[in-house]
Structures are given as C-alpha cells and as structure tokens.
Design a protein around this nucleic acid. Structure first.
Lengths: 230, 230
DNA sequence: AATTACTATTCTGCATACATAATGGTAGCA
DNA sequence: TGCTACCATTATGTATGCAGAATAGTAATT
C-alpha cells in the first residue's frame, strides 16, 4: 500500500514530495528517532537540494503529525507521550476493526487467497527466526486488509496512523512470544473474513491491535529505547 | 477549542502559520468552496506576504487533507466524493462516540454545567430562528465534549475531521427540522454524560453524527451546492 | 567558583530571482 | 471552417540572499 492517495494524475515528482516521502520513511523505519532534530541546512546538503523543498517537506510532516515544531526552534521528530500513545492505539484498534469488517463483506476471492499466502509467509519467517522479514510481511498483511476493505478514506487513515505509530512499535515486534501471538490473532482475522463475518472480523482485528495484558507494560518499557536522548 | 494542539511553548506566530489558519477558516466557513483554486500569487498579494509562506501554508493544508495538489497544476480546496464523505461520517461517528464515552467518565461538574448552558443557548437560537448562531453554538457544544473527554489525540482527530467535513455540512444545518432533531439528540448525549453512562453516551453521539433515514438523500442533494463550478 | 551579561555564531523565516512546465491564444494550413 | 502547431504568458518549483531570533560560548563581576 505504497500510495492510497495516488490520484489519476501522473503528478510529476517534485523534490519536495520526494523528500517528504524519504524523510517519512526514515522516521517510520526508525532511522530518525522521536525527538531527533530535523536540521534544514543539514538535510538540504545531505539530499543535495536547497532549503526550500526541505522546509516544505518538513511542513508536511508537521501537518501529518510525524514531526513537530516549537516556535522558531526548528523541527524534530514527534515525541509521543504514553497517554497519547494509548489513545492512538485505541483509535488504531477501531480503525483496523472497521477495515477488517469491511474486508469481510467486500474482499475478493483473490484478496482472501493473498491473505492466506501472506500468512504462510509469516509462519515461515517466524520459524526461520527472521524478525525483520516478519515485520515487513506483517505490514503487508495489514496493507492487504486495507485494500480488501475497498475503502478510501478509512484505509488511508488507518495506514497513516499505523505509520505514525511505527517508530514505537519497532522494538515491540521483536519481543519474544509476540510473533507467535500475532500469528494466532491473524488467523482469527482471516477466518472471520473468509466466513464473511463482519462483526467477528472487526472484533478480531480490534483485539489484535489493542494492547492487552502483559503486552502493555512491555510496550511502555520498550518506548524509552525508541526516543532520542534523555 | 481553538487549539487542541497548543503546546507549552509560546511559539512565535509565523506568517506561514497565521496564513494556514486563515486559509483553513476560509475553507471551513465555506468562503473557499471545494474545488476552488488556491492561487499562490493571488493569495500572496491578498495577504501582503511573499509566495513562500503561502506555499508552506498550502503544503500544510494538503497534508491535512483540506487542499489537494495535482502535479504541477496548483492547489485547490479538496473535493470529496460522496463515497468518501460517507466513510468520513462513519469515522466521525466513531470518534464522536469515543469522545462522548470518555466525557461520561471524565467530565468535571463545571463541564457538565457548561453543556447544559450551551444546550439552553441552542434552544434559544432555534426558537429565535437564527441558524448562523445555531451553527456556531452547535460547534461549541461539540468542542466542549471534546474538552470534557480529557483526551488529547482523540479530541484532536475528531476536531480535525469535523473541520474537514464542515464545508459540506454548512448547508445541511439549515435544513428544516434538522435543528429540532439536533436538540433532541444533544439532550440524549447530555443525559448520558450526566449519568456517567459511557456506553449510552457513546451510542447517543454515534447516532447523532450518523446520517440516518431521510437525512442521507437530503445531504447528498445539498452537496452539489457546496462545490464550485461543474 | 558561580552566576550573569554580552557577543558571536548559527539557524529559522521570509522575500526575491530564476528556470521550467503548463495554459491560452493566434496564426497558418488543410 | 476546423484543426494543429507554435509562441507568449502565466504560474509553479527551486535556489539564494538577507534579516532577526535563539543558542552557545566567553568574559567579567560578585
């Protein structure tokens, strides 16, 4: 789901847009940690452009919440407090639930097959002990559900929120037992979608995203490692 | 709820930020209709600034979804399709529901009193036949609920989505019977919050936002008037 | 030794200039 | 008369220059 927002127009890639996308990926992939400074001149020279497109890219990131600006003191990658993170997970659970619910009612046979394939691949990655691969394929699983939901706005919102949370989830994925649990939860979602049971699919997806039981303290503890400095 | 996102820092108002806010208000208030062009040079001369802050403001609007850019062909106020609008209302209902639910559990006595006051004012505006006043006070009612929810992210998201939908709702508010119905629905929400009944509050708010029965075709019919050109 | 004040440097915010793509209009040709 | 091609104009994208604010570092005073 590289581009939910892709429009009909071929849109010539401007430096500004390219940069935004690059910076976004750096943040989402954890190469730019929350709290890290986004120095305009440094980024400009690093990407061989002038400060103008850099500034515009940063403005976009700020508007989407990935970066924040404090007065005239430059931008930095957004640092999310734990209360806010919990709220975001709550919304995320709801949105994922909606996507799964729609997917149960609207998915094509090909998309359901695709989900099974991805699930198989996830099992493989887990058994092979490849957390990085697991992380990527897992994202693919969710992207496929968004697509299968045949929604525009909801899928886009869910995807965006997922990316905002990504920097904080990176470390969680690798925690022992989490991958195994994910597989079980995914299976529940898949089966509900295959059964065209919207309610069950919604519930399964919500449960999957929600931070329950032991995961919550683990998650909170892991957050500190995601943030720069302190 | 002028600024949910207001941070501790005093943040010196930059021209770029001021402009973004101004343009946002123009869009939300319907003075810039969906589809209307956002000419950089024209806006620059109109607001007596250079193109740079104008561009940055537009970039922000695009990132938040209020405006859209097609390639190198300039920006314009976002035109939402009916399917997307319906999705947005669905998410809106969920978010409003969450806010009300939280408000039922977290609101202060002062905030509950405030809701009653606003409700009284709404009744007055209705009886006096002042739809513009009704519209404004109505927004205040919802802002107060967001505040009473004592959430950060959720309230902010709800508020933002509300603003994105605003241009399309302007005409709906004035439809006959809608104000009367709103009052009844608001009362349900207030009573649920006063009873500290989270579930009931959530449900009441969702029902209030959802487009039900006759409202849907009315709404769809009214949209055309909101859009420029065609 | 610690704190404060001042200065210098750095970085942000804004304006302007230039290059390139898109649009509109006109002229030429079929 | 209608269509196409070319040119002019306009507007967007990018670079650069300048002014002002913030930060850091140093020196001076208590």
């Amino acid at each position: 789901m590289k581009s939910v927002k892709q429009k009909s127009a071929p849109r010539a890639a401007t430096r500004s847009d390219t940069l935004r996308s690059q910076l976004e990926n750096l943040i989402v992939d954890g190469h730019l940690k929350p709290g890290e400074r986004l120095d305009e001149t440094e980024l400009a020279s690093r990407f061989n452009v002038s400060r103008t497109p850099v500034r515009e890219a940063i403005k976009s990131l700020v508007a989407t919440g990935l970066a924040e600006i404090r007065g005239r003191q430059g931008a930095s990658v957004t640092v999310l407090s734990i209360p806010v993170l919990l709220e975001m997970f709550e919304v995320m659970a709801t949105l994922e639930g909606m996507c799964s619910g729609f997917a149960a009612r609207r998915s094509t046979a090909a998309q359901r097959t695709r989900l099974r394939e991805i699930h198989t691949e996830l099992i493989r990655a887990n058994e092979a002990g490849e957390p990085e691969a697991f992380y990527k394929v897992n994202a693919l699983f969710h992207d496929t559900i968004y697509e299968a939901s045949h929604t525009n706005f909801i899928a886009e919102q869910t995807w965006q929120l997922r990316r905002r949370l990504a920097p904080y989830r990176l470390r969680v994925t690798y925690q022992p037992g989490r991958m195994q649990a994910t597989l079980v939860e995914h299976l529940r979602i898949i089966e509900a979608i295959e059964a065209a049971d919207g309610k069950a699919a919604t519930q399964a997806a919500m449960d999957h995203v929600k931070l329950l039981g032991d995961d919550l303290p683990d998650f909170i503890a892991s957050i500190q490692k995601s943030i720069i400095g302190d």
